[in-house]
Design a binder for these strands. Structure first.
Lengths: 358, 358
DNA sequence: TGTTACTATGTTTGCGCAAACATACTATGG
DNA sequence: CCATAGTATGTTTGCGCAAACATAGTAACA
């Protein structure tokens, strides 16, 4: 009839709350602003002001409070502060993945911009699952963050609705192909796919192959793929073969898919990879098998990751501003930049890097 | 005479708090547990129990509360919960860097283990600065986290002292060469450097070179370097040359340093790199310049990053369990595992991967 | 049938802080 | 010399929740 859940144990304090010596002994009470205030001979409110550097403060008071605080080992309690005040100085961040360099660079940008503003990110990883993303994002809301950063513009209905009516700033990043909840920061993957198609068509290639991974999950790669193949077909060229695995992308997967394609019957003139990791794997395969690039087969990746610079040949790819997108999104949700009244989309430039593999 | 700081503006509520309709309209009051309780016809405390799945609850009540909560768009306020209760269900994480794959893998492990436990990580990046680390970690304490995860065992004196007397769990990760504040999870870099030295000595190499980066900051790389060079010297071999840049490590830097060494006078038989990125750069240089590896020069890296698997030659390296360390540390600070009364060090195995480059 | 143990709820209270609103003091100018 | 603006502090109050402590109903058993 009823759910049973473990009862929480009662605590074991022997004496009902007793103010003990400030430091050193165990079982000590954690000092509060009031303790600091008493020691410094000021009011609790003054301590609060000193901690937050807000309002008018004489130098004398400031140093007295700092001394007292130091002496007691006082640590500001932001939970209480957030409850009493309005702001929590937290932002929520949900990314699909961290293994992928792209997202750790984005996160780098976010963390950098946030900490410039004294704001800390609380963090979740969705593993490309909309359900997980939704759960995480909703959980993060419980911390009353100033804002939330999500990846992509596809989210569960419930999440979209909750966030839309939440009053906090929402930044959706890495994609602008669709309507954002609040403001999105990124670029058009459709355009990026199309541009690479045009670039390769202009080079004279007509027989294409595609290598991708996690297509069911990585909707942005899928968008590039679709507009890429549409564009080449519109020009009378064709996708002779493709390999799309459900594994997470990696150099190794790229290498294996490339080998499979080049051992197959439908030999392409050029392979378009969903990202640079896969493309680098392709190049490694060609190097190992003495296949000359781009003469025997040309290669193109996506993202412009810096490790490409060290490869024996520069891979043709699309440069994307990942760090900058992270920075802009964090600035936005922390209120360092204002909401653009005209546009809900902040579109960043992407550009083809014409490398030596095409 | 005195510090002036901008006064905060007063708010602009026209009517003194008025309960408006639950959803849809702007300027609405954010619903609280009491609102949910009224709608569900129960007490606030019962709502609290439902939210936290704690205590005894009848199925009827649970669904009524859920319905009411849904209807109002209620979002649990963890700030208040953390203040009233004991636990904050947050952990603090400070890492030196995110660009480095090593730390994003560690973070992956942390995030995974933490979210298994319903705990969210709050996050900071120290950029390898002890001062920044200290500031960040102390700031994170303001959120009353269950625990804190830091990198390495070298920290500012103040941070060590504060944390030691803080009662919360502290995990120091990636290094066990020294006394931890609480418990450390990692491996001995001294041993790792020594083992690679022995491995290479056994292969017969006698003339060594070293390539490193950010030596002043990356104390763990420095430890490997020191014990590596000590070990080879003890065997009568020598470090004929080295390149240590202050740049962050990257494949490109590795490539450049390798070129510089191989163009120099003191030609080594083998180059030991501070990490795999640098080593991969070295291999790239050799590939590009048709230098045969390991005949003309042997190479060894550190970490065992997965992207090595796709390179034309498997690089000799030391495999380190980064993800596992992150997982173990997160489990520890979230209380999923207990503090080991015997040992303050959880030492993980590292193992030499004998590749094709040595 | 009463006693006990369990199950399921409610009531009171205070966590630590910052907003809002005083208050008091100091310079400045007419 | 007083009004005024600016500067520097203090007092009261309540944010939203969960611990602690009731209380009341129900089942189990002698």
């Amino acid at each position: 009839m009823s759910s049973h859940v473990k009862k929480s144990m009662s605590n074991n304090s022997k004496t009902p709350k007793k103010i003990t010596s400030p430091l050193g002994s165990k079982d000590k009470r954690i000092p509060t602003m009031t303790d600091v205030a008493k020691l410094a001979g000021v009011s609790q409110m003054t301590v609060s002001r000193v901690m937050r550097k807000s309002g008018y403060l004489s130098d004398d008071i400031v140093s007295r409070v700092h001394d007292a605080s130091e002496q007691l080992g006082y640590v500001h309690n932001r939970l209480a502060g957030g409850l009493a005040g309005a702001d929590s100085s937290l932002i929520g961040v949900v990314l699909p993945n961290l293994q992928n360099r792209v997202f750790s660079e984005v996160l780098s940008g976010i963390v950098g911009a946030a900490s410039d503003n004294g704001v800390q990110p609380v963090f979740g990883v969705s593993d490309y699952s909309q359900t997980t993303e939704s759960t995480l994002a909703l959980d993060l809301l419980a911390w009353r963050p100033q804002g939330l950063i999500l990846s992509g513009i596809e989210h569960s209905k419930k999440l979209r609705e909750t966030l839309a009516s939440s009053n906090i700033r929402i930044a959706e990043i890495m994609d602008t192909d669709g309507p954002p909840i609040d403001t999105c920061f990124g670029f058009s993957h459709r355009l990026a796919g199309k541009e690479m198609a045009i670039h390769l068509l202009e080079k004279g290639y007509r027989k294409f192959a595609y290598v991708g991974s996690q297509h069911a999950l990585d909707l942005r790669a899928k968008k590039r793929y679709k507009s890429f193949s549409k564009t080449i077909q519109a020009e009378g060229a064709q996708l002779v073969t493709q390999r799309i695995t459900e594994h997470p992308s990696s150099t190794l997967v790229g290498r294996e898919c490339t080998e499979s394609i080049l051992n197959g019957d439908d030999k392409p003139e050029v392979i378009y990879y969903a990202n640079d990791d896969l493309a680098a794997g392709g190049l490694m395969h060609c190097l190992a098998k003495q296949i000359t690039v781009p003469e025997q087969v040309a290669l193109a990746g996506f993202n412009g990751l810096t490790f490409l610079e060290a490869l024996p040949q520069r891979i043709t790819t699309t440069r994307t501003p990942r760090f900058e997108i992270g920075t802009a999104a964090a600035r936005f949700v922390t209120g360092q930049t204002t909401r653009d009244s005209k546009s809900k989309k902040q579109v960043f430039d992407v550009s083809i890097i014409a490398g030596e593999t095409s």
